[in-house]
Design a protein around this nucleic acid. Structure first.
Lengths: 329, 329
DNA sequence: GTCACATGTGGTAAGGTTACCACATTATTT
DNA sequence: AAATAATGTGGTAACCTTACCACATGTGAC
């Protein structure tokens, strides 16, 4: 592979001069610049970013850890993170933690060894302490790790509130909420808080079933509905689901068992990701998280921290959610 | 950031010795090893892969360029590529070309500058010549670039054949095929070849509508059906679509316009990616491309080329497709 | 004519790691 | 006892780039 020295020799100048042409820094004679550019062209020179990264202690690489890059929400998030990063000349390394603590740990040390400039954390199995040692900025999605780790999230409380109020306004009397796992203190738990409080405020009977584990696949949710939810279902006339896949699985279960939606049972989902947007039967009533905005903000936040060299920041972002009225309420 | 020298000083040995411990190479005394490991632990040392990459001229990074990482097919492909790469200690940089030639070009030079070890090419707007200059192995999905660039593909001809035969066996007399763009010589065009030949073999009237541009979003396909396909639709009783999103859009159009599927119109899709697998109404009849196998093979093929230092290879892989009988035929 | 400053160019250390050679000590073979 | 091999450790160039200092020439001001 040709290097800057080869260019220098060919152009009859020093490596310093070539470097100056490359980086457009300092004074360069017009003729010299031309000679150098011609030489670069002729020998098909391509600057070595690895050497640059070593020299500058900056890789222009971001890591993103997600539970499952094929999940429609994360898939879309990743796309927008990547596009925004690319606009700022950053690259993105994707990591699938598959919700395994061990994998998450391994990925983090891999990213550390590769001296990524920053990390976007969307998988939350690890203990908080693990992040504190990191020497690069970390931005999380939907989780508060500590005061100085900024997070980006859609307004989870408001989402839960809107969803619950919508069910109540639609005439539901006994509400069920199928939540995500509540062990860790994740921001989506606010949806559950909002569900409880809103029900109490309106004096509505309610219950919460906790999703034991976030496997995040449709098949898993389908089984979950069958095994954990179905027995209780007859008691309720409205269900607020933690995500659209659960809502869809629930809808299908209802359809199969002759429970009429929305007449007998109203269903509200959460996410409105690409799967839900494409899905036409039924059009789910759901809470839209503006995933493209979230992705964009995740990228710009972490890049901003990289460029200002601030490891800490309290620049949290909470974006608005929106009720999408479909046919299931 | 601490480096190998700091470890050496702390452990009271030379950097060479530390390097030997790190890489488990050569002779090391038992006591020395312990001292070094203890020192590494104490100062929280993390080897700098950037320096290693520079030294060894190997980055252990693969690039993957796709049209749209949020498309359900590519999203799933990427996941499996990443998981397999990770098993072999490689990392994956994702690039969304958005089917823009300019972006594809820019990504390629970015990957070149970052000295990726190999490239998995799933976006095909560029001219063949562009790839030939690259100094790292390239593996493509669904495209023959040149003899020495290996490709991985599902058996497109067979897929087209199965789909068409299935429609004929189901009693269709006039068949339509909505293809992808046929300009470039891509392997999916074999589906169209198969469609034509199979129809001719069975003496079946048929027609092909070429998808002008691969925007790959559901909304685009929906509009496309409305504007390009709808007028002709009454002439046909069976449609073979180039992908499931088109098939789904077509199904919805038919449903909306009181064309009964499958009684009046039979529809076969292509891909059986995660969207289609989750979709329950309708269960599409489609051709399954084993995307997890494809992803795995893409990764292992390119990694194998990296490790054997062979830039050329004729190790093409064609994997079997399968008819998934749904409710649309 | 001298000084200050702008312009243009070059040499080299440093960034963190490993490959390679060199050397010292101990163990084994003949 | 001498020769050879195995074991253990250290010094340093190289990978490619940029930052930094040094130097040379030209220009305008006083």
């Amino acid at each position: 592979m040709v290097n800057i020295k080869d260019v220098a020799i060919r152009a009859g100048v020093s490596v310093t001069t070539v470097s100056r042409v490359l980086n457009n820094r300092g004074y360069i004679g017009k003729e010299t610049r031309k000679k150098v550019e011609k030489a670069m062209e002729e020998i098909n020179y391509s600057p070595n970013q690895i050497a640059r990264a070593l020299q500058k202690s900056q890789s222009y690489i971001l890591g993103i850890i997600v539970p499952d890059s094929n999940h429609p929400f994360f898939s879309e998030l990743i796309k927008h993170v990547e596009i925004t990063a690319n606009e700022h000349n950053y690259k993105v390394l994707i990591c699938n933690s598959l919700d395994q603590l061990e994998k998450e740990t391994k990925y983090i040390s891999m990213l550390k060894e590769n001296r990524v400039d920053g990390l976007i954390m969307c998988s939350h199995t690890l203990d908080v302490e693990e992040y504190k040692k990191l020497s690069f900025p970390v931005v999380t999605f939907d989780r508060i790790i500590a005061n100085h780790f900024p997070y980006v999230a859609a307004d989870n409380y408001r989402g839960g509130e809107i969803a619950t109020e919508h069910l109540i306004e639609s005439g539901c009397k006994k509400l069920l909420h199928i939540s995500g796992p509540l062990k860790l203190d994740l921001l989506p738990n606010r949806r559950t808080d909002a569900f409880r409080l809103t029900c109490m405020k309106h004096n509505i009977d309610h219950e919460v079933i906790e999703g034991t584990q976030d496997n995040l696949t449709f098949d898993y949710f389908s089984d979950f509905i069958e095994s954990e939810v179905s027995v209780k279902l007859t008691d309720f006339d409205g269900v607020f689901c933690s995500n659209d896949l659960v809502a869809y699985a629930l809808y299908l279960y209802a359809a199969k068992n002759n429970i009429k939606v929305p007449e007998q049972l109203k269903i509200v989902g959460y996410d409105f990701h690409s799967f839900t947007r494409m899905l036409q039967t039924p059009k789910l009533t759901t809470i839209a998280q503006p995933v493209s905005r979230i992705g964009k903000i995740l990228s710009t936040t972490v890049i901003n921290m990289v460029e200002t060299k601030e490891l800490d920041s309290i620049n949290n972002s909470v974006v608005d959610v929106e009720l999408i009225k479909g046919e299931t309420t």
